[in-house]
Protein backbone atom coordinates (compact mmCIF):
# COMPACT_ATOMS: atom_id res chain seq x y z
CA UNK A 1 0.00 0.00 0.00
CA UNK A 2 1.32 3.46 -0.86
CA UNK A 3 0.44 7.13 -0.40
CA UNK A 4 -2.18 8.59 1.90
CA UNK A 5 -3.95 5.23 2.15
CA UNK A 6 -0.82 3.67 3.66
CA UNK A 7 -0.54 6.56 6.16
CA UNK A 8 -4.17 6.24 7.22
CA UNK A 9 -3.98 2.43 7.45
CA UNK A 10 -1.00 2.66 9.82
CA UNK A 11 -2.65 5.42 11.94
CA UNK A 12 0.18 7.65 10.73
CA UNK A 13 -1.65 10.95 11.30
CA UNK A 14 -2.62 10.04 14.88
CA UNK A 15 0.88 8.84 15.73
CA UNK A 16 2.43 11.99 14.26
CA UNK A 17 0.19 14.48 16.04
CA UNK A 18 0.27 12.60 19.33
CA UNK A 19 4.00 12.05 19.07
CA UNK A 20 4.71 15.71 18.39
CA UNK A 21 2.39 16.75 21.19
CA UNK A 22 4.24 14.49 23.63
CA UNK A 23 7.69 15.72 22.56
CA UNK A 24 6.56 19.36 22.89
CA UNK A 25 4.80 18.75 26.20
CA UNK A 26 7.88 17.01 27.61
CA UNK A 27 10.21 19.85 26.75
CA UNK A 28 7.70 22.60 27.60
CA UNK A 29 7.12 21.09 31.07
CA UNK A 30 10.85 20.76 31.61
CA UNK A 31 11.47 24.31 30.36
CA UNK A 32 8.72 25.68 32.62
CA UNK A 33 10.10 23.90 35.68
CA UNK A 34 13.66 24.96 35.01
CA UNK A 35 12.64 28.55 34.21
CA UNK A 36 11.13 28.81 37.69
CA UNK A 37 13.72 26.75 39.51
CA UNK A 38 15.69 29.82 40.59
CA UNK A 39 12.52 31.20 42.23
CA UNK A 40 11.67 27.87 43.92
CA UNK A 41 15.18 27.68 45.31
CA UNK A 42 15.02 31.29 46.56
CA UNK A 43 11.75 30.47 48.34
CA UNK A 44 13.28 27.30 49.76
CA UNK A 45 16.20 29.30 51.12
CA UNK A 46 13.73 31.65 52.86
CA UNK A 47 11.56 28.82 54.18
CA UNK A 48 12.45 29.52 57.83
CA UNK A 49 11.42 33.15 57.46
CA UNK A 50 8.20 32.29 55.61
CA UNK A 51 7.18 29.55 58.07
CA UNK A 52 7.86 31.89 60.99
CA UNK A 53 5.45 34.33 59.36
CA UNK A 54 2.72 31.66 59.48
CA UNK A 55 3.50 30.53 63.05
CA UNK A 56 3.71 34.06 64.51
CA UNK A 57 1.54 36.33 62.36
CA UNK A 58 2.55 39.96 62.61
CA UNK A 59 0.62 42.15 65.07
CA UNK A 60 -2.01 44.40 63.56
CA UNK A 61 -0.81 47.41 65.55
CA UNK A 62 2.80 48.18 64.93
CA UNK A 63 4.77 47.57 68.08
CA UNK A 64 7.46 50.16 68.11
CA UNK A 65 10.23 50.42 70.58
CA UNK A 66 11.47 53.96 70.70
CA UNK A 67 15.23 54.00 70.73
CA UNK A 68 16.73 56.78 72.88
CA UNK A 69 17.66 59.46 70.44
CA UNK A 70 21.23 60.59 70.26
CA UNK A 71 22.32 63.58 68.27
CA UNK A 72 25.83 62.28 67.85
CA UNK A 73 26.53 61.23 64.31
CA UNK A 74 27.61 57.64 63.77
CA UNK A 75 31.33 57.21 64.10
CA UNK A 76 32.88 56.61 60.70
CA UNK A 77 34.45 53.20 60.30
CA UNK A 78 38.18 53.62 60.07
CA UNK A 79 39.30 50.01 59.71
CA UNK A 80 41.39 50.49 56.55
CA UNK A 81 43.72 47.73 55.44
CA UNK A 82 47.33 48.82 55.49
CA UNK A 83 49.43 47.77 52.54
CA UNK A 84 53.17 48.08 52.81
CA UNK A 85 55.02 49.08 49.66
CA UNK A 86 58.63 50.01 48.91
CA UNK A 87 59.29 53.63 48.04
CA UNK A 88 59.61 53.08 44.28
CA UNK A 89 56.18 51.47 44.15
CA UNK A 90 54.67 54.25 46.25
CA UNK A 91 56.05 56.70 43.68
CA UNK A 92 54.52 54.68 40.86
CA UNK A 93 51.21 54.57 42.75
CA UNK A 94 51.36 58.38 43.07
CA UNK A 95 52.08 58.66 39.37
CA UNK A 96 49.19 56.32 38.57
CA UNK A 97 46.98 58.52 40.80
CA UNK A 98 47.94 61.56 38.74
CA UNK A 99 47.02 59.76 35.54
CA UNK A 100 43.73 58.40 36.89
CA UNK A 101 42.79 61.82 38.23
CA UNK A 102 42.86 62.98 34.64
CA UNK A 103 41.14 59.84 33.33
CA UNK A 104 38.45 59.98 36.00
CA UNK A 105 37.17 57.04 38.02
CA UNK A 106 36.43 54.28 37.17
CA UNK A 107 39.24 54.13 34.66
CA UNK A 108 40.36 51.81 31.91
CA UNK A 109 43.50 49.80 32.67
CA UNK A 110 44.48 49.84 29.00
CA UNK A 111 44.38 53.67 29.01
CA UNK A 112 46.25 53.78 32.30
CA UNK A 113 49.04 51.59 30.88
CA UNK A 114 49.15 53.60 27.67
CA UNK A 115 49.50 56.90 29.54
CA UNK A 116 52.01 55.45 31.99
CA UNK A 117 54.17 54.19 29.09
CA UNK A 118 53.92 57.59 27.37
CA UNK A 119 55.03 59.29 30.60
CA UNK A 120 58.13 57.08 30.56
CA UNK A 121 57.27 55.22 33.76
CA UNK A 122 59.44 52.14 34.15
CA UNK A 123 57.71 48.72 34.24
CA UNK A 124 54.14 50.02 34.50
CA UNK A 125 52.77 46.56 33.71
CA UNK A 126 54.55 44.89 36.62
CA UNK A 127 53.45 47.62 39.02
CA UNK A 128 49.87 47.42 37.84
CA UNK A 129 49.97 43.66 38.40
CA UNK A 130 51.16 44.26 41.97
CA UNK A 131 48.45 46.85 42.67
CA UNK A 132 45.77 44.50 41.35
CA UNK A 133 47.13 41.57 43.36
CA UNK A 134 47.23 43.61 46.57
CA UNK A 135 43.74 44.98 46.02
CA UNK A 136 44.96 48.59 45.80
CA UNK A 137 43.22 48.90 42.42
CA UNK A 138 39.92 47.03 42.26
CA UNK A 139 37.40 46.19 39.57
CA UNK A 140 34.10 48.06 39.49
CA UNK A 141 30.84 46.14 39.32
CA UNK A 142 27.52 46.17 37.42
CA UNK A 143 27.52 48.19 34.22
CA UNK A 144 31.05 49.29 34.95
CA UNK A 145 32.52 45.81 35.20
CA UNK A 146 35.85 45.80 33.45
CA UNK A 147 36.69 49.34 34.63
CA UNK A 148 38.72 49.94 37.78
CA UNK A 149 38.94 52.23 40.80
CA UNK A 150 41.33 52.82 43.66
CA UNK A 151 40.21 50.83 46.70
CA UNK A 152 38.79 53.10 49.41
CA UNK A 153 39.58 50.74 52.24
CA UNK A 154 43.29 50.43 51.54
CA UNK A 155 45.96 52.67 52.98
CA UNK A 156 49.40 52.58 51.38
CA UNK A 157 52.29 52.84 53.83
CA UNK A 158 56.01 52.65 53.28
CA UNK A 159 57.67 49.32 54.10
CA UNK A 160 59.23 49.52 57.58
CA UNK A 161 62.53 48.07 56.33
CA UNK A 162 63.00 51.19 54.24
CA UNK A 163 62.11 53.74 56.89
Amino acid sequence: MYGLKAISAANGWTITFTGLAIVFTGLVVLAAIMANMERFLALWDRRGELLAGFKHPPRKQPFLVQEPRTDRPEAPTTDKTRVHLPLDQIEVADHFHLITNRLGEPFSLAQLLEKASKHGLSSPHRHLDTFLKLGIIVEDSGDRQGFYTWANDVEIVRSSAEE
Binding site: G3, T16, L20, V23, G26, L27, A32, A35
Partner: peptide, 25 residues
Protein backbone atom coordinates in the same frame (compact mmCIF):
# COMPACT_ATOMS: atom_id res chain seq x y z
CA UNK B 1 14.78 27.45 28.92
CA UNK B 2 12.72 28.96 26.07
CA UNK B 3 15.40 27.83 23.60
CA UNK B 4 14.57 24.25 24.60
CA UNK B 5 11.43 24.57 22.48
CA UNK B 6 13.58 24.87 19.37
CA UNK B 7 14.95 21.43 20.23
CA UNK B 8 11.37 20.14 20.33
CA UNK B 9 10.43 21.84 17.04
CA UNK B 10 13.30 20.21 15.18
CA UNK B 11 11.78 16.82 16.00
CA UNK B 12 9.00 17.58 13.51
CA UNK B 13 11.46 16.14 10.98
CA UNK B 14 11.22 12.72 12.63
CA UNK B 15 7.45 12.55 12.34
CA UNK B 16 7.12 14.02 8.83
CA UNK B 17 9.71 11.52 7.56
CA UNK B 18 7.77 8.78 9.31
CA UNK B 19 4.72 9.82 7.26
CA UNK B 20 6.76 10.01 4.05
CA UNK B 21 8.21 6.54 4.65
CA UNK B 22 4.72 5.14 5.21
CA UNK B 23 3.58 6.78 1.98
CA UNK B 24 6.52 5.19 0.13
CA UNK B 25 5.38 1.76 1.18
Amino acid sequence: PRLMLLGAAAQVGIFLTFLAALAMG
